[in-house]
């Protein structure tokens, strides 16, 4: 499969995403809309995964190189950041821990609910079987 087929599909979804983003008043970045549309098109089979796989894995496997230029821009901004260095680091450390707890504990909670529901359900069916005996 020619890698440009995948690249074309990805670019086309980016264009559509940008268009929808503009129609929505620029609320959500076009690329994020494009990602969701690609996901939906793959699920529905409109786009076959083998068409995009080569191009998509090239992009996602090497994701880091694509934000190297943005990262380097910190050199020009260092003067501003330096003054609030510790406050900045403190925000990053604390909020990262909070996000980790929020997501991990939410999933733990949902799992507990599901297993309790299942146990209750099993109990009921168990009783029914006993009654039938």
């Amino acid at each position: 499969m020619n890698v440009f087929i995948g690249l074309f599909i990805i670019l086309a979804f980016l264009v559509i995403g940008n268009l929808l983003s503009a129609l929505l008043g620029g609320f959500i970045p076009g690329s994020v809309i494009g990602m969701l549309l690609l996901f939906l098109s793959l699920l529905t089979g409109v786009i076959k995964d083998k068409w995009v796989r080569q191009a998509a894995t090239f992009l996602t496997d090497n994701m880091m190189i694509f934000f190297m230029p943005a990262f380097m821009g910190i050199m020009d901004l260092w003067g501003v950041v330096k003054m609030d260095l510790w406050a900045w680091i403190a925000v990053l450390v604390l909020t990262t821990i909070l996000v980790m707890l929020a997501s991990g504990l939410t999933q733990t909670f949902v799992e507990r609910l599901v297993s309790r529901h299942k146990a209750a359900h099993a109990d009921k069916t168990g009783k029914i079987i006993k009654q039938e005996d």
């Binding site: 996901f39 793959l42 998509a56 996602t60 230029p69 943005a70």
Partner: peptide, 15 residues
């Protein structure tokens, strides 16, 4: 290189 950030995000749809 910077331009490919957008396509990168779209490509996450495959993931």
């Amino acid at each position: 290189i910077d331009f490919f950030l957008g396509p990168c995000v779209v490509a996450l749809g495959l993931l």
